[in-house]
């Protein structure tokens, strides 16, 4: 789909290597593992925790022009839904082509109903979604 997923923690790339080599849970990891040992990238994205020196569970989608298109941050104790991340990524790809449309929360893939904001739609979103 033309995206690169980079996982980032405040570990070094040496630690990533060691963990990936030895931890069975990480054996299937195929994504590039990024190292942010100074926390500067985590700070830039607002996910650095000064008290722990760790990065919160932040997910950010950046388009090919370098523009931030999506942002989600979970606390330590809340896992992320990868299906929802993929839904948002696919919606971003779609909306990059269809700039005058909007993807409602139920949108899953190309072909699903979208919204086209207009004066006529004001007060009639329900009809636009369900007609």
């Amino acid at each position: 789909m033309g995206a690169d997923i980079v996982t980032v923690s405040t570990d070094t790339h040496y630690v990533h290597l060691a963990w990936q080599r030895h931890e069975k849970e990480l054996a299937d990891v195929r994504y590039t593992m990024g190292a942010d040992p100074t926390g500067s990238l985590s700070r830039l994205f607002g996910v650095y925790d000064d008290f722990s020196g760790l990065a919160l569970r932040g997910t950010f989608i950046i388009n090919p022009a370098g523009v931030l298109m999506n942002s989600e941050v979970n606390f330590y104790n809340m896992g992320r839904n990868i299906n929802e991340l993929m839904r948002k990524f696919k919606a971003n790809l779609y909306l990059a082509k269809k700039v005058d449309e909007g993807c409602p929360s139920t949108w899953q893939e190309e072909g699903d109903k979208t919204l086209r904001p207009s004066p006529e739609m004001v007060g009639r979103v329900h009809e636009a979604l369900h007609e």
């Binding site: 980079v6 996982t7 980032v8 849970e25 989608i61 896992g79």
Partner: peptide, 21 residues
């Protein structure tokens, strides 16, 4: 380089290598 290559980027921050998703 991502911009030169026309690639999307998804950054996936996580606390440490033992707490992945």
């Amino acid at each position: 380089e991502q911009k030169q290559a026309g690639r999307w980027t998804i950054l996936f921050f996580y606390p440490a290598d033992f707490t992945f998703v």
